[in-house]
């Protein structure tokens, strides 16, 4: 019954694709039109002297600077250390978020004890933690990784905790009627049902990890993309600053796409 229906819709779909050959496939290119136009406008504004070159470099100058730093090898060290910080910070923050989110999602008592505290801590701006973390952990890698972990933690915790708490009562009743038992009903019903919430949390966590790494590197670092940025300010090199911003944009987008891809594969229902 359904098979015939599927083939029918399949036929209609391919017929449509035949009538409008490339429209949908190249649609994403439309998203590049505005940014490309902006780059052109940027170039013209600097070239015609509306913006002074010592405040805003020409687009090509930014590319040259990045290329030059890549050629000398200087760039890779900065990128590597930033990626490493984000990776370990996210790993730590997501792990702790999963543990606390699960515990508070499952146990009302844990939620009553922990949730009010964590809800208020999440409202503290990232920069406010920096002095304290420097005092406690020095200017080493530990302070930065921990600061990033704080950022990555909250979205994971909040989403997972509500995700587990909001698993459909209907499904929990099914587990109860069929006597799945506590462990099996968690493994087969509650946790799979909460996976979409967890992934939404991880996506948010990775985004915040990038925000927090900038905070950490701007203030206390001798290496990293954030350090490169503040170094650019000291040296009055706007090309380095803009280049660093672009690097953050690139890696931020890349990691978001990666998590999105995982999300698409894990939540395919």
């Amino acid at each position: 019954m359904a098979t015939t229906r599927e083939t029918e819709t399949g036929d209609v779909g391919s017929a449509l694709a035949g009538a409008l050959p490339d429209a949908d496939r190249f649609r994403w290119l439309l998203g590049l039109v505005v940014p490309a136009a902006l780059v052109v406008v940027w170039h013209l504004l600097v070239a015609t002297g509306v913006f002074a070159a010592h405040q805003l470099p020409q687009p090509l100058r930014v590319v040259e600077t990045l290329y030059g730093m890549a050629a000398t090898g200087e760039l890779w060290g900065h990128i590597a250390i930033t990626l490493q910080r984000v990776f370990f910070g996210t790993l730590l923050g997501v792990s702790v978020g999963i543990v606390l989110g699960t515990v508070t999602g499952l146990y009302g008592l844990a939620e009553d004890l922990l949730d009010p505290l964590l809800q208020s801590l999440k409202n503290i701006p990232s920069l406010a933690w920096v002095p304290l973390f420097l005092l406690w952990f020095g200017i080493g890698e530990g302070a930065k990784v921990l600061l990033i972990a704080v950022g990555a933690f909250f979205p994971v915790y909040l989403n997972l905790s509500t995700g587990i708490g909001n698993v459909s009562e209907d499904l929990i009743e099914v587990a109860e009627v069929y006597d799945l038992g506590r462990f099996e009903s968690l493994r087969r019903v509650v946790f799979p049902a909460a996976v979409p919430s967890l992934l939404v949390g991880i996506r948010g966590g990775v985004g915040l990890a990038w925000m927090f790494v900038v905070a950490a590197e701007l203030i206390a670092a001798s290496q990293g993309i954030g350090f490169l940025m503040s170094d650019g300010r000291v040296l009055a090199r706007p090309d380095i600053i803009v280049g660093s911003i672009l690097l953050f944009a690139f890696f931020g987008n890349l990691s978001d796409l990666a998590v999105k891809e995982v999300e698409k594969r894990a939540v395919d229902w």
């Binding site: 209907d170 009743e173 099914v174 799945l180 099996e184 087969r188 799979p192 049902a193 996976v195």
Partner: peptide
């Protein structure tokens, strides 16, 4: 009990959904 609504696990296939009913 067979509920009025199907109440199936959206992420599990038909076989896995039926296996939920298997005795513990």
């Amino acid at each position: 009990m067979v509920f009025q609504e199907p109440r199936l696990l959206a992420w599990a296939d038909v076989r896995e959904n039926i296996a939920v009913g298997l005795p513990a």
